[in-house]
Structures are given as C-alpha cells and as structure tokens.
Amino acid sequence: MKRLTIFITALLSLPAYAAQLTLELGDTRRTWQTVELLKHPAAQEVRIDDDVSYKRAMTYRAIPMASLLEGIKPEDHLQAVALDGFAAELSAAPLLSQNGAKAWLAIEDPEHPWPALGKGKPSAGPFYLVWTHPQASHISPEQWPFQVARITRQRAVAERFPVMRPDPALPVDSPITQGFNLFQKNCLACHRLNGAGDSQFGPDLNIPYNPTEYFGADFLKRYVRDPQSLRHWPQARMPGFSTRVLSENELDQLVSYLQHMATRKVTLP
C-alpha cells in the first residue's frame, strides 16, 4: 500500500501534457500535444493588452497561426471548435496576415496554468486564439475562441448550410445579405438557424421562433447590446456587442437578416 501511495503521488506530480489540438486542413491531419507546441520553434512570449476573455492585459506563450496553417490560402474558410461546443467560423485571410491584426495560438502550460475565467469556471486553455492589434482588422470577440480542441478547413457557410442563405435574388449589397455576413461572423459560433450549423452552444434563431417574432426591433437591439438589461440571469453566457464590435448600421443589417429569415423557415423532422 505504501508503494502504491508513493507511485500515485509521483504520478500526480508529473506535468499534465495530455491536452491536444487537432488540425484538419483538407488533405492533411495533425494532432499536436501541448508539450510539442510549447517547444515549437516559432513559440514566443506575446502580450495581449486588452484580452477579450480576461478583460485585462495577459501574457501568453504563443505561436503565430500562420506558422501552423500549412497549405491554407487566404480565400479558405476555417472553423475552430471548442470543448464546450462553441464553433467559430473564421476566414483564413486574417489568420494568415502579417500586417495589422495578427492571430496567435496561445498554449497553456500545465505547470503554469492560466487563471479561471470566473468563479466556478475553467481557464481559457488549453488552447486559445488571441490577437495583437485586433482593432486594425475589426476582429470581433467571436474570433477569439478559447478552449479550442480542433481547427478544420471547411467549405463556406453558404455552401455547407444553404437553409441559412437569404433569398438569392437579393443583390450582394442588400442590407439583408450584409446581415447574413455579420450573422456568420458574430452569431454562428453559438447559434444554429433553421436547424443548420455546427455549434452546440446556444439555441436555434429561427426554429421554432425567430427572435424578431417575440422581440420588438428596439428591444432586440437592446438585448444584443446588453443581454442582462432585458433578462437578468447570472448563468447567461451571451456577451453584449458594443458599437465598437457591431456598429449601429451593422446591427440594423443583422436584424434585417433575421427578420427576412423568419419568412424562410424550414420544417424540421
């Protein structure tokens, strides 16, 4: 029994390098272990002045995303899936860019764990997509996925989920079409629509009811800006979208898209 106790104590004292990140980039698939990423030749210390998740300055051991996305082109589309079902839709171009905003994969060292995101919550690790100078490319909070487990190359959202598309007869510069683009960037990471989408995080925004059917437009906009101002719920997870993230014109476009999709519902099994 004494030997078993010593063995268990020694085992628990070892660094916990069990976390892994899977990259599925078309024809290639690779799984990275934490220890490999921490020792990656491109890894360096990166300071994030205004971290979206921690709401303060943070310093990480991180790798430029461009160093990991071998074979990916700017016109490609990627998806980052988190442990909790959050699925961020990401254009590859900003992730590959070396100018303006720059994307980094932050790696949590088990020997020096990051702080919890809140009382009773885990940290943002083991892998977290962060940005330096995010304002330069209008990077939204939904483009900062944390607890990332997998990054995959995907077809464009409109191809994968045609039931999300607005009427194809609409011009590309229509507020509704622009709203669809904003929906992909800011909403699809958490929500489905017409039963379509990969996220397991939040409710469907069209089935059985679209929020424009039970919120007046002004109240819906207030809800997007500050969810707690309409529904005070300590366990709520939806963040507010400030005018810095979503301008008034963009919010109008997003609501226009949702109103339009309320007329294009599908029948689910």
Rank of each mutant, 00 (worst) to 15 (best):
L21K: 00
H112F: 09
E75N: 13
K73S: 14
D218W: 06
G100Q: 04
R160D: 12
P171A: 11
N206K: 10
V46P: 01
A80K: 02
A62L: 06
Q259H: 09
P203G: 09
K2C: 08
L68D: 01
S13P: 03
S256D: 13
P113V: 09
D51W: 03
L268F: 05
E70N: 14
K73C: 04
N186Y: 08
L129F: 07
I107V: 15
I207N: 12
P134K: 07
D50W: 11
I48T: 05
D252R: 07
Q98K: 14
L83H: 11
M238E: 04
A87D: 09
P171H: 11
A88I: 04
L25F: 07
N210P: 02
S53K: 09
I8C: 09
P94I: 05
A149I: 10
R61S: 12
L268N: 03
D84R: 03
W233E: 14
G197C: 06
A42V: 07
A136R: 11
W104E: 00
G216T: 13
L38F: 07
P234G: 06
Y214I: 12
V148C: 02
L90M: 15
K265T: 05
T9L: 15
L254R: 01
Q184L: 10
R237M: 12
L205A: 03
P227Q: 08
L105N: 02
A92N: 01
A92P: 02
A42I: 05
I72G: 01
T267D: 11
D167H: 09
Q44L: 05
T263R: 13
P41W: 06
A16M: 12
P162Y: 07
G240Y: 05
R165A: 13
E75R: 13
M164E: 14
S199T: 11
L117N: 03
R150P: 00
A101H: 04
A10R: 11
G100P: 01
A42W: 08
I207K: 04
S97G: 10
L14C: 12
Q44W: 06
H191N: 08
G26H: 08
E36M: 06
L37F: 06
P15D: 08
E108H: 04
E75D: 14
S137A: 14
S91C: 06
W114G: 04
G195A: 09
V52N: 03
S174V: 07
S229T: 11
Q259A: 14
K119E: 14
S247W: 00
I8A: 14
L251C: 05
T28G: 10
Y54F: 12
N206R: 10
P113E: 10
M58N: 02
L96G: 02
L205S: 01
G118A: 13
P41M: 09
L69W: 02
Q253A: 08
F146V: 03
P175C: 06
R264A: 13
Y209P: 00
A88W: 02
V255R: 00
A101P: 04
S53N: 14
N206S: 15
E111S: 14
Q200M: 15
Q33P: 00
N99T: 14
P122H: 05
E75Q: 15
L220W: 01
L83R: 12
G26S: 10
T31M: 09
S13D: 10
I151W: 01
Q135A: 15
P115R: 08
A124D: 03
C187P: 01
L246Q: 03
L68G: 01
A18G: 11
L23D: 02
L129I: 15
